[in-house]
C-alpha cells in the first residue's frame, strides 16, 4: 500500500468523509477550517473558511453540491462545494456534535451538546427552504439524560439512529417525532456510527474498546469486534465482508514513551467471523475518523496527530480469503 499523507490541518482531525462517488474527500479538524481533497492524488481542492471554533462534524449531500459542518462556535453551516461560499448558517445554543444529510438530502439532522444550561437536542431542518436553508428546525427533540455523540439517518428519510454516552443507541421516527426503539449497545460512549452501503446495518465504535454491528431496522446486535483500546471510528467495506476499526489510547493519557503503547493502528476484521486479519500502522496519535472509499479499493484515516492518510489496497488484500 502506498499511503498519501495529507497535512492540511494544524489540529487533530475530527471527521473525514468521502462524497458518494469517492473522488472527493472532506475533512474537518479542531482548527476551524474544513478542507476538501482529491482522493486520487491527495491534492487539496479547497477549504471552507468561516467557522470560529473547532469543527466537530461534517457531511456531504449525495449530489456533492453541499457540505454541512457543525462546530464549537455554536453554528451549523451549509456550504456550496463548488465555490466554498456559505449558503446558510444555523445558530445553535451549544456546540454541534453530529450532523448528517438524509438520503434525499431534503432534510438534515444535527445534534447539539449539553453545555452550561443547555441540554442536548436532536434537530431536523428542511434543506428545501432555499433562502435561509431551513435555519429554523422543523423538529426539535430534547435529550435530557445521555447526550448524543453520533448520528445517522435510516435508509429512506424516515428514521434517525443516535448513539449516546454510556453506550445507548436510540431510533427515532421523524414522521411521528418520537423514540421508537432503544438498546444499551455498549458500555462506553459511542464515538462513531457508520452505515453499510445499503444502510441495512450499521457499525458503532465505542470507548469500551469494541465496535459492534447492528441491524438498522430492529437495532438487533449482530457482531462484536473486540480490541484493547478505545475505538473512535469504524467503517464497513462496501465490497467485501470487512470492517475497519480505528482508535487508540486517548490522547490525554498517552505516555510519551512509545506509539506502540497507544496502538494507533487501523485494524481489519472479518464482518461475519469477528476475527482480526490485518493491521495498518502509520499514525502517531489515535485515529479519530476513518472511511472506506465508496469503491472499496482504499480507505482513509484522520488522526489526532493532524494527518490524514489515504491508503489504497494492495492486490494481496483482495486475494486474502478466510477458509470456511
Amino acid at each position: 500500500m502506498k499511503p498519501l499523507m495529507l497535512h492540511g490541518h494544524e489540529r487533530p482531525i475530527t471527521q473525514i468523509k468521502y462524497n458518494r462517488e469517492g473522488d472527493l474527500l472532506f475533512s474537518s479538524a479542531k482548527d476551524h477550517i474544513p478542507n476538501v481533497w482529491y482522493s486520487l492524488n491527495g491534492e487539496r481542492l479547497g477549504s471552507f473558511d468561516g467557522h470560529a471554533g473547532a469543527v466537530w462534524c461534517l457531511d456531504v449531500n449525495w449530489e456533492s453540491t453541499h457540505l454541512m459542518t457543525g462546530a464549537a462556535d455554536n453554528s451549523l453551516k451549509i456550504w456550496d462545494i463548488s465555490n466554498g461560499k456559505i449558503l446558510a448558517s444555523v445558530t445553535t445554543l451549544s456546540t454541534v456534535r453530529a450532523c448528517v444529510f438524509s438520503y434525499s438530502a431534503n432534510m438534515a439532522a444535527y445534534s447539539t451538546d449539553t453545555q452550561r444550561k443547555q441540554i442536548c437536542g436532536i434537530n431536523v431542518i428542511d434543506c428545501r427552504i432555499s433562502d435561509s436553508f431551513g435555519s429554523y428546525p422543523i423538529l426539535q427533540i430534547p435529550i435530557p439524560d445521555y447526550k448524543v455523540t453520533a448520528m445517522q439517518w435510516g435508509p429512506i428519510d424516515e428514521t434517525i439512529i443516535t448513539g449516546h454516552e454510556k453506550g445507548r443507541i436510540c431510533q427515532w421516527d421523524i414522521r411521528m417525532s418520537k423514540k421508537v426503539n432503544e438498546v444499551d449497545g455498549h458500555q462506553g460512549s459511542i464515538n462513531d456510527m457508520q452505515m453499510s452501503k445499503d444502510s441495512m446495518m450499521f457499525v458503532t465504535a465505542s470507548s469500551d474498546h469494541s465496535a459492534k454491528l447492528f441491524d438498522t431496522e430492529s437495532l438487533m446486535h449482530l457482531k462484536t469486534y473486540q480490541t484493547e483500546r478505545p475505538v473512535n471510528s469504524a467503517a464497513i467495506s462496501p465490497i467485501l465482508d470487512h470492517v475497519v476499526l480505528g482508535g487508540g489510547q486517548e490522547a490525554s493519557v498517552v505516555t510519551t514513551t512509545s506509539t506502540r503503547v497507544g496502538k494507533f493502528d487501523s485494524r481489519f476484521y472479518h464482518l461475519v467471523f469477528e476475527e482480526e486479519f490485518a493491521r495498518v500502522k502509520g499514525h502517531f496519535g489515535p485515529i479519530n475518523s476513518l472511511a472506506f472509499h465508496p469503491d472499496g479499493r482504499g480507505y482513509a484515516t484522520g488522526g489526532e496527530d493532524g494527518y490524514i492518510r489515504i491508503q489504497s489496497f494492495d492486490p494481496s488484500y483482495f486475494e486474502f480469503n478466510f477458509d470456511f
Binding site: 500500500m1 502506498k2 499511503p3 498519501l4 499523507m5 495529507l6 497535512h7 492540511g8 477550517i33 478542507n35 476538501v36 481533497w37 492524488n41 491527495g42 491534492e43 487539496r44 481542492l45 479547497g46 477549504s47 473558511d49 463548488s82 465555490n83 466554498g84 461560499k85 494492495d314
Partner: peptide, 18 residues
C-alpha cells in the same frame, strides 16, 4: 477547480514508500 476558493497554504502531501 479554479472557481473554488483555494487556501493560501500550499497543499502538502507526502508519498511514503510502502
Amino acid at each position: 477547480s479554479s472557481t473554488v476558493q483555494i487556501s493560501t497554504k500550499c497543499p502538502t502531501y507526502v508519498v511514503l514508500p510502502t
